[in-house]
Simulated assay, not measured.
Amino acid sequence: MLTFLGYAMVASFMTLTMTKRMTALVALMVVPIVFGFLAGAGGQIGEMMMDGLVKLAPTAAMLFFGIIYFCIMTDAGCSIRSFDWWSSSRRVIRSRSSSAPPCLVPWSLSTATVRQHT
């Protein structure tokens, strides 16, 4: 039951944010509270929220930074369309073996190239 609720919570969070019915920050607050009540932990939600804030604050801060960073980059005109990821990925995979060390240099060069274009 808890596994199903966990997957349903992630799916509802993704659906709400991707369909733009809620912002990511509001969905991160509302969705766990709703699913906490559905799981039957209504009286303990406040204590669980405080424990969760202490334990997951760094992860939430990284998610918030990622959202803000990519929103600013998109508004500045630095979108993913400025670099052809698919053709360069196919080229690197065809030219190198599947092990990590031979692929490291081409991937780092492609990253540096993208960084120069932004």
Rank of each mutant, 00 (worst) to 15 (best):
G36T: 07
M48W: 13
A39T: 07
R96P: 00
L28R: 04
C78R: 07
V10T: 13
D75P: 00
S88A: 13
F65C: 04
S95N: 12
T19W: 02
S87R: 01
K20N: 11
M50R: 04
T15P: 00
V10N: 12
F13N: 07
T3C: 07
M29L: 13
L53E: 07
S95Q: 11
K20E: 11
P58H: 05
A57E: 03
S98N: 08
L2G: 12
V10Y: 04
G52Q: 01
L25I: 13
M48I: 05
I45E: 00
S12K: 11
F83G: 00
P102V: 11
F70D: 13
E47K: 09
A112R: 08
S110P: 00
T113L: 15
S98T: 10
L56C: 05
T118K: 09
G46K: 01
D75R: 15
I67C: 06
S97F: 09
P101Q: 05
S82T: 12
G46Q: 01
S89V: 04
T23Y: 07
A60N: 04
Y69N: 05
F70C: 08
S108L: 13
P32T: 06
S99Y: 03
L38F: 10
T111L: 10
L38W: 03
G43W: 15
A61I: 07
S108W: 05
A24W: 07
A100V: 14
T118N: 06
C103A: 14
S110R: 08
R81L: 13
T74V: 05
A27W: 08
R94G: 06
K20C: 02
K20L: 03
L25M: 08
